[in-house]
Design a protein around this nucleic acid. Structure first.
Lengths: 153, 153
DNA sequence: CCATAGGGTTAGGGTTGC
DNA sequence: TGCAACCCTAACCCTATG
């Protein structure tokens, strides 16, 4: 019928990038409502934006990180659950994301009550990581580019 | 990232249930302060407890109230196509899904952003920026390196 | 100011079609 | 088989209200 699977056009991708640059990643609804982008993205939902951004990010950094992780987990588990989200400071070679998480987790204090600030740190960190991942294409991250990228907060 | 989205463990769920049995639903702060549960729920806020209880309740009753589950219908739709996503902004009665989408798109106002407590993360922003500019690695900085740099505060 | 209720939004795993 | 687009929904955020 019409469009069971609406592919993203270059225009839409550009609008999404611009939107993220202006409002920051994670502000999908905000980007969607921005008159500057709503004209191009009118047929997309906030979830669509999020999903597309995820795909683009996966492309930007190392190559197939999402699929790789998914398949790896699929092959390995099945009836296996990995409870313990904290303190999995094993030394085996993990993905970059996991390493970062572990380090940050042990860096910030573990006292109960300051969860709020801890989460803020993680969120900011995530933002920076997004910036770096995406700016990897031009060839090297520099302060100015990342600052500009993050500015739209 | 690994855990910006902290999944509830069975232990935590059990503690929450026990807490509600002991203090009653709606006494989130009270449950949180109870020494009997604070050990397990220390990383949760009263709001987290409230939200989790809501999710659990939804599960308990006949399959979905908050996320109205027409899963059975959904399964059928999957087989077919739900064509014509663009065009016809009004016209015929669409699925609940799209109705909701439309409604959401017109609510709330603009320019919320940075308020009071969120200011603190700006400091970290600068910190990470400094890390990035100082690391100037060839090929771009990676997450681990930056995390390591920041760790040495 | 602090807590709760409730509507709204996002994150991330899962699924599907090409 | 791989990947891009799409779905599901737990977890989280925002705001109103007491």
């Amino acid at each position: 019928m019409g469009a069971p699977k609406q592919k993203w056009t270059p225009d839409e991708e550009a609008a999404l990038k611009a939107g993220v640059r202006k409002h920051g990643p994670g502000k999908w609804r905000t980007i969607l409502k921005d008159p500057e982008f709503s004209g191009v993205l009118y047929s997309r939902s906030n979830v669509d934006l999020k999903d597309k951004w995820r795909n683009m990010s996966v492309m930007a950094n190392g190559c197939g990180s999402r699929e790789k992780a998914r398949l790896t987990l699929k092959r390995m588990n099945q009836a296996r659950k990995q409870d313990e989200r904290s303190l999995s400071v094993s030394t085996e070679a993990k993905s970059d994301e996991e390493m970062t998480e572990a380090r940050l987790a042990t860096t910030s204090s573990d006292s109960p009550q300051i969860r709020g600030s801890k989460r803020s740190i993680i969120r900011l960190d995530n933002l920076i990581m997004e910036a770096i991942s995406n700016l990897k294409e031009p060839g090297g991250s520099n302060k100015t580019t990342i600052a500009t990228y993050i500015e739209g907060l």
